[in-house]
């Protein structure tokens, strides 16, 4: 007899727990998307019609529409990347503040700079090596040391030169 009772207790408890959680689940769905969440996506999108203005600061009516679009998509559960992908498809890759790594932008913004830096470093090191001819010019003789500290000597010699000039 007691066993059965326990079982039914457990079942009721379980049901009660479920019912308790339900409003929380519903509440999570209905919780509005904050402005901050919209801004987080909006600041990486440029207004398709205005000049070089990010979507979060753009004051026009069109931008307001787009921000509402972001809000709607966020509440539908779309991720940031999905929304950015949507904007790129609808309005062109040019609206993304972070141009996607494909096509021309890949070449111009990633490959080209890396190439230029590498080539630059190569040329630069060759230049340095070429300039380096050890016996070309004799360095000026070091002035005699007056204090024990070479660093201070340097300063003193410079200071003395200034006083002379």
């Amino acid at each position: 007899m007691t066993k059965l009772r326990k079982k039914s207790h457990f079942r009721w408890l379980f049901l009660a727990l479920l019912l308790a959680l339900l409003p929380a689940a519903v509440y999570a769905q209905a919780e509005p998307i904050t402005d901050d969440e919209v801004n987080e996506v909006a600041q990486d999108v440029y207004c398709p019609v205005c000049e070089s203005t990010p979507l979060d600061v753009c004051p026009t009516a069109a931008c307001a529409d787009w921000r509402e679009l972001i809000r709607t998509k966020l509440s539908e559960g779309q991720s940031r990347d999905e929304i950015l992908e949507y904007f790129a498809r609808q309005y062109g890759d040019g609206v993304l503040a972070n141009p996607p790594r494909r096509g021309a932008s890949l070449v111009i913004l990633w490959i080209l700079p890396l190439l230029l830096v590498l080539v630059g470093l190569l040329l630069f090191s060759r230049l340095l090596r070429g300039l380096r001819r050890p016996t070309a010019a004799a360095p000026p003789p070091r002035p005699k040391s007056t204090t024990g500290d070479p660093a201070l000597d340097d300063y003193i010699s410079r200071v003395e030169k200034e006083v002379d000039e």
């Binding site: 990486d44 440029y46 070089s52 990010p54 062109g92 890759d93 040019g94 609206v95 993304l96 503040a97 972070n98 141009p99 096509g103 021309a104 932008s105 111009i108 913004l109 080209l112 700079p113 230029l116 630059g120």
Partner: peptide, 28 residues
């Protein structure tokens, strides 16, 4: 200087090579 130059004039370059005017934002 080179990087800033490249990124600043990127819209013109991207329009030249892809027909679409891209833009480079602060994060880049």
């Amino acid at each position: 200087l080179g990087v800033v130059f490249l990124f600043t004039y990127y819209p013109i370059l991207s329009e030249l090579f892809t027909g679409e005017k891209g833009f480079v934002g602060p994060p880049v």
